[in-house]
Amino acid sequence: MSTSDEWREPAPLRAWGSAELWVAVVALVVIFVSVLWQVISRFVPALNWPGVGELAGYSLIVLTFVMVGYLIGNNGHIMIQIIDYLAKGVAFTIVKAVSAAFTAVICALLAWEAYHLILMYPDRSSAALGVPLWILYTVPLAGFTSGAVRATVRIFVAGRPDAPFDAAEAR
């Protein structure tokens, strides 16, 4: 199945991606524990803590945005692959390069917007935990910056076949 010609991210980006995946795994564990905590605390009132719902919600947000770059780098985002059947050879390489360029621009715009949000809400904090929201907006800033870098790299390797993504093998 996999051939030596298939492109994989260079080592520094793989290490970065592995760190992103670790953050996502921690966020997933927090979601599980928090939601379970909410159930248990209803029967053991001493464990009642109003922060659990919010903690779970923000963990899902962290999980989503921190993985943006990882999924771009590993070809793991959900995308529509009609063009794979229509464009072959050089034409397909050009499509992939253009696609990566658009992906990079969109990620860069979102990173720029996340930066604006950090500036716009210096005093707003979350209702239950009181976490300043600007801290939470640094997660999409980091995720979309990572995505922009990954997509930019992919413009230049558009000619190489992609290694197919298998979530079960995610590292």
Partner: peptide, 27 residues
Amino acid sequence: LLIRVPVGLAFIGPSLWYALADGRSPG
């Protein structure tokens, strides 16, 4: 979508562009 941009980003890109052109705040 046709040129295989990830579905989520393909939705966000033009929406973001429209929002800015419509006078929405950056962010």
